[in-house]
């Protein structure tokens, strides 16, 4: 069995194990849907005079996507690591040919599949509920894939450092919630203190890139250039790719092998 075969076997098992936990599957799709309904229909985001949730609906697309790209892999992979450790599965896997990075790659593939479907549903729901004008660019795909992989890596780190499933959930919520609102997702940089280093959050590059790709502001060009000739989308994609590689490698290395 090749490396691809091992990853396929792990991916199939992890995918089935997740899809058969109906509550987890339901809330993976329900959570972003309820966020869209709250912000899009109840709060009724719209272009206005400034303040929170007053940008045009399309501005918030990165935020809606971030709900699944950030929360799901972080909590799911973190919990999976904790569950594997509690059930002594890593101890067994350590004596099989499956490498740690192959295990994390399989978990990432499962998350990419699930979140890819959820992201497509989110985009359609945003259009239906808010009437947002979205550019369905193919560049959205690498942003979602890299974002998911990045937070799978971070989830693996959290799971490895936490001593229980409960600890993973608490830690992932404690990290994800600030990131969600301090990464130019729902709250523009102009509404936040200047000293706040939004560049520290990896989600910022996802948010900026997705916005550059999918949102056309009424009075500016969506693909403005940055020094060096790269577009905003491409430059953020490159940063996101580099961060994804770093988080994935660190996540794989920290996965438990010994007691």
């Amino acid at each position: 069995m090749s490396r691809a075969g091992r990853i396929r076997s792990e991916t199939v098992a992890a995918g089935k194990a997740f899809l058969r936990r109906r509550t987890a599957v339901f809330f993976t799709f329900f959570f972003p849907a309820i966020i869209i309904l709250i912000f899009g229909a109840l709060v009724n985001t719209a272009g206005g005079t400034g303040g929170l949730f007053t940008e045009p609906p399309g501005y918030y697309v990165p935020g809606y996507l971030a709900v699944v790209v950030l929360f799901t892999p972080l909590s799911r992979v973190g919990s999976e690591v904790a569950r594997h450790r509690e059930d002594n599965r890593f101890e067994k896997l350590a004596t099989t040919p499956l490498r740690r990075w192959e295990w994390l790659a399989a978990q990432t593939l499962v998350n990419v599949g699930i979140i890819g479907v959820a992201a497509a549903g989110i985009l359609l729901l945003v259009v239906a509920v808010t009437g947002a004008s979205i550019v369905f660019s193919p560049l959205l795909v690498p942003f979602v894939v890299l974002g998911v992989a990045l937070f799978c890596g971070l989830g693996a780190i959290l799971g490895s450092l936490s001593d229980s499933s409960d600890g993973v959930i608490a830690a992932s919520n404690g990290i994800a919630l600030p990131l969600l609102f301090l990464s130019e997702t729902f709250v523009p940089q102009s509404l936040l203190p200047e000293w706040l280093p939004l560049w520290v959050s990896p989600l910022t590059y996802f948010s900026r890139g997705v916005r550059a790709v999918a949102y056309e502001p009424p009075d500016t060009l969506a693909t403005s250039q940055v020094p060096g000739g790269l577009g905003v989308a491409e430059s953020n994609l490159l940063v996101l790719a580099a961060l994804t590689l770093a988080f994935f490698v660190v996540g794989a290395v920290t996965l438990p092998r010994t007691d």
Partner: peptide, 21 residues
């Protein structure tokens, strides 16, 4: 005290580990 994934069938559990070799 080893436990494989709970929502796999017995056949799937064995197939999963067999697929790693």
């Amino acid at each position: 005290e080893f436990s494989p994934p709970a929502r796999l069938t017995a056949r799937e559990v064995v197939s999963y580990y067999g697929g790693l070799y």
